[in-house]
Amino acid sequence: MSQEFCFACPRPLDQQETIQLAHGGGGRLMQRLIEGLFVPAFAGGAPRGPLHDSSVVEVREGRLAFTTDTFVVDPIFFPGGDIGKLAVCGTVNDLAMSGAVARWLSAGFILEEGFPIESLCRVVESMQRTAAAAGVQIITGDTKVVDRGKGDGVFINTAGIGLVAPGIEISPDRVRPGDAVLVSGDLGRHGIAIMSVREGLQFEGALDSDCDCLGELVSAICARGAAVHCLRDLTRGGLAAALNEIATAAAVGIEIDESAVPVAPQVAGACEILGLDPLYVPNEGRLVAMVAADAAAAILEIMRAHPAAPQPALVGKVTDTHPGGVELRGGLGGRRILDLLSGEQMPRIC
């Protein structure tokens, strides 16, 4: 499928402007939704073969990565993205964090009765555009419709399969004391962008979500081969959650220099006003990398050359003290624990 692919929303689908229960009922209306919307969008009008219960793909020998994620963002459309873009990027990114190149996705939709078909078209188109840009194909899917009031417009699940090139081993197991800790860009944009829309908060200067596919960036980083030990995309719980998970899984300590962590002024300002810590605010297009210290400078250079890494930075190092814990060195020189939060800083975001 080409990146220039474009399709016109086939509205009205059978004169309906909103999703009806029958759109998930297995009958004609559902067939029209599949043939009128999903197939033209995802298969470029030409399915890979006759529509069937599952898709079959050819793989040569090697290793596959497989992951799944479900997306329930409110609002569905937000500055810098929408639930469709999020659903593709999220799964592509999860695959990339194992060093896998995403190839095939599934897309499962749970639609609420009454959801505007025009909105569904926009979401589907956004998924297609994002998938094409990331070089991944959406090859199977499913739709269910729930009664009005029993959903929240649209929920999307994507599962993905990616190929892991020989020689790539990316896992918390490989994190070693002395590793450098890098982040690919400034933190907290997604969480604050969502919040600003949801709560009607106005900030000086527009703020877009960082929602983005990191597959190409990871491929570029992985050109450094064995020096790349572990990658993690920073979603719910932000950098703090990712570091805590890695520190626990790898039984190492991590030290972060707070003043080295890039945060956009609008995000920092919003966090100050709302009493939030940007280190815990969700992102949807940022990663943290644990890499061999002697390769850190070169990998930072690779990141700097890549549009998906707008403000890469060396933010800390892996240590052999306090295994399982993350310590933050503050701007004033004091040290404190960077712990997991017991709940969310904000209600449901992604």
Partner: peptide, 9 residues
Amino acid sequence: ILRFAIDEM
């Protein structure tokens, strides 16, 4: 005070 470890100064 705790966030910036002021007491330790």
